[in-house]
Design a protein around this nucleic acid. Structure first.
Lengths: 182, 182
DNA sequence: TCCAAATGGTTGACGTGTCATCTATCCCCT
DNA sequence: AGGGGATAGATGACACGTCAACCATTTGGA
């Protein structure tokens, strides 16, 4: 019954882990701060808005939204309550299933999203994307997908994969229409 | 002049950003969960314990600890209050400066850290480190350092106290104490 | 010497996230 | 039918983080 000596991290591993954690800490703080100052939105607020904005009719089934964002239902429920309070979204009942609910973006929510998107994308670019080479971006994407895939299959074969947050431009140039930040 | 059309993310950029965010979301959740279940500690709890555990006399000046961890003083203060409540740390006054304070690991805190470290490292390995190639680890480290460096200098080149990084295992590679993972 | 500003740290209010629990509905099997 | 179980979602309690305000002490001049 020898106690197995734990396998500490090597210097190389330690360096990567450290860099990753510190990057997240600072990057997240900075981007959140920008978003808050520029648009009076929190990070999660933006995520919800952008995900709804990218939806067909600007509305989604609550559980579908939760799955898509990789959020717990509870978290989403709490957050929607706060956002509804602020007039950014509304909850509607769904006819086909008495239990279900649908969240829809209000006009105000839509306007808020449109107004926030450009600055947010710019923030992400400035503090992150533009600092990295294409090669680095690719490695990051690959590595992230590897980790996500493993975690997703471990913690629940029931999970559906979908897109979630963020940027990119879904057509609709001109001036209005959803800043397709998905 | 003309309103500048925001520069949305390209597919490649979008993919990297997306992967990064999802990875963090799931990875962090999983590691926190493991830590909570294995050792009854939250992520921040562990960070504080391990940082104090690695200190010369198992104690640090509060502000130095905050800088080192890249935490706000307020956050640290709140967290120390909770940890003190649980008997993991104690605050002591400092003679040389009437305003100052020092936090020290209690024996219980030390025991808790020792007990938690192996499982935590294993968790980090299992869900993250062991899934990546050395090359990927290096790219991640490099990229993370680039981003951190930029953010650190932007948000406060003035103070810039010892923060930097440096957390390399203080000769702990051996076996006994000083399990420093983060 | 004296006081304004800086520094170290705490606190309160409030938004956010987690877990456990609860309600209502739906599904399916007998 | 009829009831057990799964599902959709909401909620309450509590941990965590942020911001702004707040002491107390220390420092730097005039």
């Amino acid at each position: 019954m020898t106690v197995q000596e734990p396998q500490w991290l090597t210097d190389r591993e330690q360096r990567a882990w450290q860099a990753y954690r510190r990057m997240f800490l600072l990057l997240n703080a900075q981007i959140s701060r920008d978003l808050q100052h520029d648009s009076k939105l929190s990070d999660p607020d933006y995520d919800v808005l952008s995900n709804l904005g990218a939806a067909p009719d600007r509305r989604r089934r609550v559980s579908e939204l939760a799955d898509r964002m990789l959020w717990s239902r509870s978290r989403l429920s709490h957050h929607l309550a706060r956002m509804e309070q602020r007039g950014l979204v509304v909850r509607e009942g769904v006819a086909t299933d008495g239990r279900g609910a649908v969240v829809a973006l209000t006009d105000q929510g839509m306007r808020t999203l449109d107004a926030a998107a450009p600055a947010h994308v710019a923030s992400v670019r400035r503090h992150f994307i533009d600092l990295l080479s294409p090669a680095q971006l690719d490695v990051l994407a690959e590595l992230g997908e590897t980790v996500v895939e493993r975690l997703a299959q471990e913690s629940g074969p029931a999970s559906a994969s979908g897109a979630a947050d963020s940027k990119s431009a879904p057509g609709a140039a001109g001036s209005k229409s959803a800043p397709g930040t998905d």
